[in-house]
Amino acid sequence: MFQVRDVTYRYPRNRKDTIKGISFDIRQGEIFGLLGPSGVGKSTTQKIMVKLLTDYQGEIYYRNKELKNFDKQYYQEIGVGFEVPVHFSKLTADENIHFFKKLYRNQANTDAMMQRLGIYEAKKKKVDEFSKGMKIRLNFVRAVLNNPAVLFLDEPTIGLDPANARTLKTMIKEFRSYGGTVLLSTHLMSDVDELCDRVAFMADGRIAEIDTPQNLKMKYGERKVEVEYDTGNEEATSKVSFDLDTINRNEDFFKLVRNKKIITMHSKETTLDDIFIKITGVEKHD
């Protein structure tokens, strides 16, 4: 669906490139995750792909045609969810949605979506009276009100309570099941784990790694067992870990289990969180 080839971008007043040569493909019908620490260029990449920033170097093909050759009709086919509030604050949610809807050929059943996301009752309220989470849910409805073929979502679940985040994720998955393609920028591993078919890790304006979440876990993963035991002297405990794959041959492990009082024992698989830190070299802040 998209072929991104060696794209670089520099903001007009900056001295350094923000995007330093990225290449990736997005296939039709997949959820493609763009992952990375804050300030790495995820939103910038998304803005380039929705033609908000047009002064990039390199090439981007959508349906085998360079993005620069598309006019405003491109927006008939895509939906864009921003990470910031983007509505007319003194109009009601309903008025906002209807205004934007009229600009498109395809029109989705927005009432049903508002109902699922729990903002239908508030649709006659002005958007500036909405809570943060309500605005985010409204952002999503606005992004899909034209039944887009491609959906760009920037941090769609940030600021949502767990129940609403769940509903939203279900709706994103449903979008995919109807053949929709999604580019999802996020720094939440749980979203990636749950939603993404493939994920690109960004570090400092470049793509460090692209693969499926499963392959990444295999590649960077370590499987181990962590055992906490009573050392016998006073109240001190000690921790050791053993490789899970060779544990059936590990005499040290058997000795420990036989002779010591075990306090806890956990098997640990590398999470995407650990991989995130390993690949990007950045501790994540939530």
């Binding site: 929705v50 033609k51 908000l52 006019d71 405003k72 009709q73 927006y75 008939q76 895509i78 864009v80 921003f82 910031v84 509030p85 983007v86 509505h87 007319f88 604050s89 934007f100 600009l103 498109y104 500036d128 606005r142």
Partner: peptide, 17 residues
């Protein structure tokens, strides 16, 4: 107003020239 509340951004990604 439009720039501050972000609605200008939204207008830019709709089929309006």
């Amino acid at each position: 107003f439009e720039k501050q509340e972000g609605s200008l951004h939204t207008l830019l990604v709709t089929p309006i020239s």
